[in-house]
Simulated assay, not measured.
Amino acid sequence: MRPHLHWLGLALVTSIFSTSLLASGGHTVSHSKKSHSAAPHDPSHWSYEGSTGAENWGNMKPEFALCKSGTQQSPININEAYAQNLDRLQFFYQPSKLNIQNNGHTIQLNYDGGSFLEVGKDRYQLLQFHFHTPSEEAIGGKRYPMVAHLVHKNEAGQLAVVALLINQGKADNPLFTQFWENLPSEHNETKIKDDIKYNVASLLPGNSSYWTFMGSLTTPPCSEGVRWFVLKEPLNISAKQISRFKREFSMNARPLQPLFERAVLDSN
């Protein structure tokens, strides 16, 4: 089901608040929770199930309060959108060495510097991308088997995340084959392959139409002021490749959050 569209003649004015996100990097392999303690996601503090699951994040620490009280939280169900003449997403992505991490919550690929997303006059550097199953975003109530979140930050520290929905297709995706062949064997482990270069641009669809809204990080501390772009055209990978990710993380998606007074815009 696709979102119902409205036409608006007025411009939407939104404020993007500064948030911080630490991208994992370096050329070391970490196995222990102690050495991983500086990473943005500490497996000992929150999870997706039980007493430390998403419903309880907001009560776990004062700094997680927005997970409970925020009014611009992500993910959302995109059911109604307002068609606008929006700026094109322009991807200026360069090749990166393979830097793949199992941080205890997802598989994350840290990206070399020098790759950018431009939206109008705004420029954001690509820091990393990671995966969720099922997709955290829902389109007309439907969640896809997976999603990739490409996390960017501008010079002011403001975040922009591109969500690439992932559907089940027939054929293996060559890039995912490369990723999964180099998966870290343990949580809190990073593998760096200087001899393997790839460009994440090869995963992007030919059609860059998108929905956009203001939201938050989908993991603690659930910081708001994040600019979200959800690409309309999904990526297809094989059932085998989806299953391989689910062997590591059977479910790592936050429940859908209320939209409140926010508007979702459609780029057409």
Rank of each mutant, 00 (worst) to 15 (best):
C67S: 05
Y198L: 14
A263I: 11
E136C: 08
A65Q: 15
H105F: 13
R143S: 14
V161G: 02
A65D: 07
L265C: 08
S135C: 10
L109N: 04
L109V: 13
D87M: 11
P255I: 02
A54G: 05
F17R: 10
P255K: 06
P3K: 04
A156I: 01
S267N: 09
P220G: 06
D266M: 02
S47T: 05
T14Y: 08
W180Y: 15
K232V: 10
T190E: 02
N56T: 05
W228C: 04
E63S: 12
G120H: 08
L203K: 12
L231V: 08
I76R: 06
S96P: 14
A163E: 08
G113P: 14
E55Y: 10
Y124R: 06
E155L: 11
G215H: 05
V264I: 15
L235Y: 07
L150P: 00
A239D: 12
Q84E: 13
S135W: 01
L159C: 09
Q90C: 07
E63V: 03
V151G: 00
I166S: 01
I139W: 06
S202E: 14
V161F: 00
I242N: 10
N268M: 11
A156K: 14
P205C: 09
V13I: 12
N102M: 08
D122A: 07
N188R: 11
Q241D: 00
H45A: 09
G169H: 07
Y198E: 03
H149R: 08
Y82V: 14
N56C: 02
P62N: 10
S37R: 15
Q72C: 01
F91N: 04
K193W: 08
P184T: 12
K153S: 09
P62A: 11
A171M: 02
A263K: 15
M146R: 05
